[in-house]
Computed example of a mutant assay.
Amino acid sequence: MMCLFLTGCAGMAKSRAGKNGNVATPGDCRVQKEGNQAADGSGGQNDSTDGRKGGNDNGSVEDRTEATTEDMTLLRDYDAVSNKKFSWYIVRDKNHGISDCDHSFSIEQYDAYYVDQDAGDDKVMYLTFDCGYENGYTEQILDTLKKHNAKACFFVTQTYIRDNVELVKRMKEEGHQVGNHTVTHPSMPGISVEKQKEELQTCADYMKEATGYRMDPYFRPPSGEYSERVLQLAKDMGYKTIFWSMAYLDYDVNNQPGKDYVIEHFDKYYHNGAIPLMHNVSESNAQALDTMLSNLTELGYRFVSLDEMFEK
């Protein structure tokens, strides 16, 4: 098996690279090359009766968390919750089994998930895209998803919403989800609880104001950096935190893996219940998506909303 450390999605600075190859964004996600051990490494609360993933009534953060946010975040003693920083990583399984991950603590106790552990024989996949800025490929990605009747969750920053209101509206209109990726893409364990809360709430509020749609109740930690405290706050605010069980180096627009690499990566590591991390800025993803979805569809896979994962 292979160990893969990641640190989330593309950063936020406007000096970030565009299609023509400008300066790469500071804070972009980092991934160790395959085969080497790395050195650098939101819908509401769990209210299920069987201890699984918790219920989901398909409501939004605003629908389900007004009372939760006001009550839980004020009552919680966050100083009592560990703020030790972790960087999400996965260990790939070459036999199409579920990727392994860090077991320092159970993330599910905080309504955090990286794979559908209950998928069993169900050939289901939950596509996710991190969107820190627009690089000209999201429209093509949406066209391809529509062609295959595939759903995805797009994790957006406030900056992305601000600069791409019509694209975000299109995501919602075509049945995709739009999750919270914060306002400024900070390392969440490195800021105060009050600032963490502001990052999440302001992004959600802006989503509603700018697009008329409410933020879906899913959160992806910037740069894949998290702590138990961060996950607890997100849960208290009504979010499920979504990590990933598949990923590769796709965020650097000046060092793209290529179309064939992306296709081969999915062919090699697909697994039931997978949550792939992709970046909307990637030319390789845009070029490979049609073939990748076709190949997996032939194997019987379907690509559904995260809501379905929590409706079981």
Rank of each mutant, 00 (worst) to 15 (best):
F5H: 11
T7L: 02
R16M: 01
P26T: 12
P26F: 12
C29S: 11
E34L: 15
A38Y: 12
D40L: 08
G43P: 05
S48E: 12
R52A: 14
N58K: 14
S60Y: 12
R64V: 05
T65L: 00
E66C: 07
T69W: 08
T69F: 09
E70I: 05
R76N: 08
Y78F: 15
Y78I: 03
A80N: 09
Y89P: 00
D93T: 04
H96F: 09
H96C: 04
G97H: 06
I98C: 02
D100L: 15
C101F: 15
S104Y: 02
S104P: 00
Q109C: 02
Y110N: 11
D116N: 15
A119L: 08
G120M: 08
D121G: 07
D121V: 03
Y133L: 03
Y133D: 12
T138N: 13
I141R: 07
D143E: 14
T144H: 03
T144C: 07
K146F: 09
C153T: 15
V156D: 01
I161S: 05
R162H: 14
N164H: 11
V165L: 12
E166W: 00
R170S: 10
N180Q: 06
N180M: 03
P186V: 06
S192R: 09
V193M: 01
V193R: 00
K195I: 08
K195P: 00
K197F: 10
E199G: 03
Q201H: 08
T202V: 13
P217V: 02
S227G: 10
V230M: 02
Q232I: 01
L233I: 03
D236P: 05
M237G: 10
G238L: 02
I242S: 06
Y248N: 10
Y269E: 06
N272F: 13
I275M: 11
S282N: 04
A286H: 07
Q287A: 13
A288F: 02
S294I: 02
G300C: 10
S305P: 01
F310H: 14
